[in-house]
Amino acid sequence: MKRAIFVAVGTIAGLTATLRYTPDNPLLTAGTDLALGGPQTLGGAQSQAPSAQGSPNVPAVSASKTSTPVPTNSNSAKPNSVKTKVTKPAPKPTKTVKPAPKPTKTVKPAPKPTKTVKPTPTPTKTVKPTPTPTPSATPTPHLVSATGDVAQAGFYGPVKVKIQVANGLITSITPLKWPTGNTSISISGYAIPLLIQDALRTQSANVATISGASYTSQAFMTSLASAMAKAGL
């Protein structure tokens, strides 16, 4: 599998354009401009062991003022931030509804007949980036590191990861062993860093899991799981 995932390094600087979508559809809430970062590096394999992705309970989305138009080819650009407010998980009353299991469902899920939704476009507000709450002073961080078992990635070869844990949160994941060789370049060069990022960011922001990210390496997850078990997570 040859993928030109990692495009040569380059920078986009200075271009500013903020397009604004005026919703002609009454169902749409007014748009939130993406504030796309200034000079940025394109592509490039992600670092193998990024340090902790933000502090606990802070969504990994930051705000930035400058805007840069983004090429729609997502391979070639990665604006580094988006100005949007991440839903703060507000405690909800315990309400455990058990939907009756239904293998196939009708397309119209509970059609509520007459209720045309017309959310009035939310008036423009100035975004106040959620201030980073200073982490409650923890006297001495409880540091643990653990190495996962070697897991076979089938066709691709062995995977082994090491994790660093501080106060119950993983701060880094280092692949000690992962597939090499022609056939597995895309696995080690692409999937493993992606998986590391997923594993790190899910534990911040109280987010339990992530939509839109597919997990391509069972072996990575297996080794990570055993490392986490050893670290008592």
Partner: peptide
């Protein structure tokens, strides 16, 4: 007392989530 919180992968930055929902 906490519904599942699910992040949405950032389309331009595979290290970030762009939003989340309960």
């Amino acid at each position: 007392d906490q519904a599942w919180v699910v992040g949405i992968r950032h389309p331009f930055d595979d290290q970030a989530i762009i939003g989340s929902a309960e």
